[in-house]
């Protein structure tokens, strides 16, 4: 806490694309208020001026994918009273977790001129596999209003209003016509957590599962439905193994489909 009583907020980045941090900066109408309510003590994406920890709230973007990050997250945990993982990378490993099914050494050999300079872990994993996390906010990227809600809730000492039901609920509230039923399209909405506002189905596409598995995802039944709709086993597997593919229910569904 600062001398003026404002809590200290820190934003940290691990292996990620910075999109979730940008979602915070996209809170254009609210940023000034956030700046008044808390001290933005550490947020390199926004400013190189930093204030030392400890911090009241730490937001962590990105997965843990290098030996260095593995140590750094432990240090950050020690310096943050409340630690919140934000985004698909920090909560499920993210798109870079696709390597978890493959031989990462082979990738390095192919991609880098001097592979010996590269230090990486075999698997990209969510923050919660390494340290205790107080809250996980899903999304690829996170929904900026959900970020605001989580921040507001933690500052007020209440539970954030972040639903864990399916994307279908958001589709139906909006009045969007179901793409599975009306077009025979494969859509991960029924097994994916709400929060994005059902963006993809509103544009006539199936859900990609960016917000990860909902509270009780029946992946077996939906996978079966995809096959009935004429989706190949491989394509169905690739749908589950997407942005949040390393999250356990999706991982299992993908692996079962691939046989």
């Amino acid at each position: 806490m600062m001398k003026d009583g404002r809590p200290k907020l820190a934003v940290f980045k691990f292996s990620s694309c910075d999109g979730c941090q940008l979602s915070i900066l996209n809170l254009e109408d609210e940023l000034l208020e956030i700046g008044q309510r808390v001290t933005i003590a550490y947020f390199l994406e926004a400013s190189r001026a930093t204030v030392d920890g400890p911090y009241d709230v730490g937001l962590v973007e990105g997965s843990i994918s290098t030996p260095h990050e593995k140590e750094l997250i432990k240090d950050i945990r020690r310096r943050c009273r409340t630690l919140i993982a934000i985004g698909a990378c920090a909560t499920a490993g993210g798109i870079q977790a696709l390597r978890n099914w493959k031989d990462v050494k082979e990738f390095i050999g192919v991609v880098y001129a001097k592979p010996e300079y590269i230090e990486t872990l075999e698997k990209a994993t969510p923050v919660s596999e390494h340290v205790k996390v107080d809250f996980e906010l899903r999304g690829c990227p996170v929904n900026k209003y959900q970020i605001l809600e989580v921040l507001t809730a933690f500052l007020a000492g209440r539970k954030p209003d972040i639903p864990s039901y399916s994307v279908c609920v958001e589709c139906k509230r909006k009045g969007t016509v179901c793409v599975v039923v009306s077009r025979g399209m494969a859509c991960l909405g029924p097994v994916t957590q709400a929060g994005c506002g059902a963006i993809c189905p509103s544009y006539g596409r199936g859900c990609y599962g960016c917000f990860g598995p909902m509270e009780s995802p029946n992946v077996e039944s939906l996978a079966e439905r995809f096959l009935q709709l004429g989706v190949s086993r491989r394509d169905a597997a690739l749908m589950f193994k997407g942005f949040t593919g390393w999250a356990e229910p999706f991982r299992k569904a993908g692996e079962v489909l691939e046989g």
Partner: peptide, 30 residues
């Protein structure tokens, strides 16, 4: 239950399902 996705679509399209949830939203300064 083996087939049911628990997605809630049936209740949303049902013309009589009336259940709602109520939630509070606060601003940053309360």
């Amino acid at each position: 239950a083996k087939r049911c996705l628990a997605c809630g679509n049936c209740t949303m399209v049902c013309p009589t399902c009336f259940c709602t949830t109520v939630s509070e939203a606060t601003d940053l300064f309360l």
